[in-house]
Design a protein around this nucleic acid. Structure first.
Lengths: 309, 309
DNA sequence: ACATGCTATAGGTAAGTCCTATCGATCGTG
DNA sequence: CACGATCGATAGGACTTACCTATAGCATGT
């Protein structure tokens, strides 16, 4: 026993409109017995006579009159579905979802959304990045296809990283005396620090850089305060409660707004943080993801120093 | 290359809701590879990735998010279509079309509609019978499945007739003097008559009866006025412009309303008109048609003398 | 490292799709 | 009234699709 199908409805409608199986077959590009078979199958699945075979041609029954608008609605909905998918595929509509967290969002957050909307006015944009833990989870679970981040080191836990830019790490403080000369490893080891990205502390690239820097002096980094987001860290610096080390792009954006009294100075030797695309290892990226990567990279490179090689 | 199908949408929705091909297969009662194949086919026909295969389970893409409501609408419409057909099949809704013309509608017209609506409150009823020519055409073309008529003789032009009742033919006049005794063939041949059913005059059963009756006297019927419907004939009789011969049931219904001054009397010998079901020869009747025949027969038998054997 | 739970693949059978060829019935015509 | 034209139904066969079982491959959690 066959089941109701779109093909049957198509043949039914063509037959209804043409009043003839032969004409319907011609319209649909089939042989006449094929259409006849489909209509008969539809009548069998519905258990009702749709056409009265009357000498020359066929005549719809009242049940066929009843069915026709429904059949039209079904086929119309199918067409709408197909169009919706096609337009979503070509970014005329639909949603583009991308991860953007850590300090990366400071560089490419709002501006990246603007870039996407300028090029594809119909799309919705979801920039996922409330907190690092969630984003990591979404990436791992596959709900997020790709993300741009500033923090973790390369190659952890089945994820694949592609560096796109680097940004200098600077020392920020509300005490002008500490900003007169570049900060050495020794001075850094004595400082009282507030550091963001607590959740990612084990893999945070800023911390990794600092650890390597301090390792040469035989000391561990002194983090007096741990917070989750950079804004909070900067505010604490502005209040004079601690100093911190953050990417320069973040300092330029956040200090005037959140800590007007604070300033920044380079480390000595200069250290750099890496911005990278991260996605599941071995994944082939969708057009939407590739688009976001392209736009995000372009925007970041217009702010920080582009990665060489 | 396969084409978009309802089956694919069903599998897609189940997979979307379950977040798993295996779970979807279990829900649908299929083996897992079958659902997998359908989803893959849908992705191929749409040319887009709907799920990201990620280790344990599958995760819908944003295009799948876009497709889901459309797929639900399509399947919903299909369900509606199926329900509409089922309810039309069982007379809960839909249209019942039946032919009812000649003088038959005087007996069973409004009352028959009332009978149908009393038993099946949801249906629409179409009682086709504006004029005999149209109805004959609709029957021949198959648009009308069956009809109940009072006029034509049996067995003409590929149609099949089934008698269900007979009604006495009576002589009507506005002149009381002509109603004192039953009208003989001789008196009838002298009368000035108005006769309805002009279009069917060659096969009209009333006229056939009269012709046979008069043939015995060697005369032809004298129709002074020809009209299409019985009401007009009765009105003319009421105005004293002519007399007529019509079924008794029609006389009882129409005289008080349209010709209060007129009355009726039997013929001598009494003559009878036949009410019959007519449909295309060799046709198998639909439930709707059988229902109408049953109800029409019951109603007519409650008015005129039932046909014996 | 192992068991587990999921998807992908392979291969075979049943069923459906669509064709060509032909029959039967109907309708208009000479 | 026989004729050709037209349309739907039927038969039979080539091809495709649907669906199954069995199993491999991979990711995940203990």
């Amino acid at each position: 026993m066959t089941v109701l199908s779109l093909h049957q409805l198509t043949c039914f409608l063509a037959t209804y409109e043409q009043g003839s199986l032969t004409a319907a077959a011609e319209e649909l590009g089939y042989a006449q017995p094929s259409v006849s078979e489909q209509v008969r199958a539809l009548e069998k699945t519905l258990g009702v006579e749709l056409f009265r075979r009357v000498g020359r041609g066929v005549v719809p029954t009242t049940v066929a009159d009843e069915l026709r608008p429904h059949a039209e609605r079904v086929l119309g909905s199918v067409e709408e579905a197909r169009k919706a998918v096609q337009s979503a595929k070509s970014f005329e509509t639909g949603t583009i979802r991308f991860g953007m967290f850590g300090t990366a969002r400071l560089y490419a957050g709002a501006g990246l959304v603007a870039d996407v909307l300028a090029r594809y006015p119909g799309v919705r944009v979801e920039l996922i990045g409330q907190n690092s833990t969630d984003v990591q989870e979404e990436l791992r679970r596959g709900r997020l296809e790709a993300a741009m981040i500033a923090v973790p080191q390369m190659g952890s836990e089945g994820l694949e990283f592609t560096p796109v830019a680097r940004d200098e790490l600077v020392y920020i403080s509300a005490d002008p005396a500490r900003l007169e000369t570049p900060v050495s490893a020794h001075r850094l080891s004595l400082a009282s620090l507030v550091m963001p990205e607590t959740t990612w502390r084990a893999v945070d690239s800023t911390r990794l850089v600092l650890r390597q820097m301090l390792h040469e002096t035989g000391r561990n980094p002194q983090t007096r305060i741990e917070v989750e987001d950079v804004e909070t860290a900067v505010e604490l610096v502005g209040m004079g409660l601690a100093d911190s080390v953050i990417p320069r792009g973040a300092a330029e954006q956040l200090l005037p707004r959140l800590a007007p009294a604070a300033g920044w100075v380079s480390l000595r030797p200069r250290q750099y943080d890496t911005l990278a695309i991260v996605h599941r290892a071995g994944a082939t990226l969708s057009p939407a993801a590739r688009l976001m990567i392209e736009l995000a990279t372009a925007r970041i490179n217009s702010i920080v120093h582009p990665e060489m090689g």
